[in-house]
Design a protein around this nucleic acid. Sequence first.
DNA 1: GTGCATTTACCGACCGGTCGGTAGGTCGGC
DNA 2: GCCGACCTACCGACCGGTCGGTAAATGCAC
Lengths: 223, 223
Amino acid sequence: MNSGRRQDDGERYRTILETAARLICERGYEGTSMQEIAAACRMTKAGLYHHVQNKEQLLFDIMSYGMDAFEQQVLDRVRHLEDPVERLRQCMRLNIHLVTGGCSKEVIIILHEHATLTGEARAFIDSRKKNYVRFLEDSFSEAVRLGRIRTVQPTVAAFSFLGMVLWIYKWFQPDGRLSAEQVSNEMVELLFAGLVTPGVAAVPAASAQMLSIVPPAAVGEKP
Amino acid sequence: MNSGRRQDDGERYRTILETAARLICERGYEGTSMQEIAAACRMTKAGLYHHVQNKEQLLFDIMSYGMDAFEQQVLDRVRHLEDPVERLRQCMRLNIHLVTGGCSKEVIIILHEHATLTGEARAFIDSRKKNYVRFLEDSFSEAVRLGRIRTVQPTVAAFSFLGMVLWIYKWFQPDGRLSAEQVSNEMVELLFAGLVTPGVAAVPAASAQMLSIVPPAAVGEKP
DNA sequence: GTGCATTTACCGACCGGTCGGTAGGTCGGC
DNA sequence: GCCGACCTACCGACCGGTCGGTAAATGCAC
């Protein structure tokens, strides 16, 4: 077979990002040297610098890579859901899955090294994070407006959601007493079981078009 | 002039810990050099090493100092509360107050540098943390047993509690749109309003001793 | 209270080692 | 013969930590 390594281009770079992410996730950004990263890639430091501009750019690329993974594995899969509560529930489930499945060290680096980048790079990543926060806030607001949940302050609700979910990386052990599924189910219930208004039943999937009868403002014109 | 201070003993060391904590909180443990810490204490590095054994011991002492502050400002003030729900509510309130009030950088270092220490020092701090987790688990368990809240998995409940509260250091701004009070009130409601069993009223403060008379099962095996 | 040994709190200079980063060269595939 | 991938060799700066030394404060015998 061809096995073509020739123009691996991005392919090679991606394995470097993943290798570096593994190390940085274990030892922290400042605690990991370019020497060590190079060695883990079975290269010398100078060899690594052929692919990488500098250390900070490497961190930025790791975070961007993690952000891509997050958006495609979580955000993009729940954005379309009509019912805001179901949207939030699914979102929590997927986000917990992302954080507990060990395959995404890049995401954990985004969470832990939240103040390591500076300048434009920091601002760029922060704006992508902010985008997620706004998505959650809007979903909570919409759920309140539709009477699906009782009144809550959307910002606090969003950050509570995030705290529960993103703190997991600090304590969860994949081979521990609790499975990821258990955590996921319990946590979703914990936040939403006491939040949903008993009077209004969950909107079945089929009733999506019913929502379009409600005045447009309620559906959610997002800026 | 005398310029006082002679035998401050522990006093001097404590100001060093606080100064070091401020810097490490801003730049991270690995990102802060002993040189910088010494300069912030208006000393040379050699002078600093007269007070400090080594860098890791310094971090350990900062964390221990933070743990003392936490236990005395949070744990010790709620341990005695009879009603487990009121205990958890108060605990959340005090813990949020500790994390939002900027006076305790040491606590934030404990949160952020959760994997920096190694060996015995790491194990020692971890056991003090674990103690808090167990306290929360036990309180949730007791609340369920008494029928004060609906059934939840105590470990997940405890870590959700912690996630909500401890994630705050990543996003809260003291001079931002939301006040610490608002966050506190909203967050307590968010977790407990949907958790408490409507059938069983909150135990008034005076009836604490009543609980020890009534057989546990009778207080609240919910319908 | 004075004289003196000791202790405390710090300093300048320096240690071996590692940091992020680079200049220039080698080598194999097209 | 050229280009990309990777190397050896090296840079100045800085790392955590230690050395011998010292000025001032303290404890104590008299």
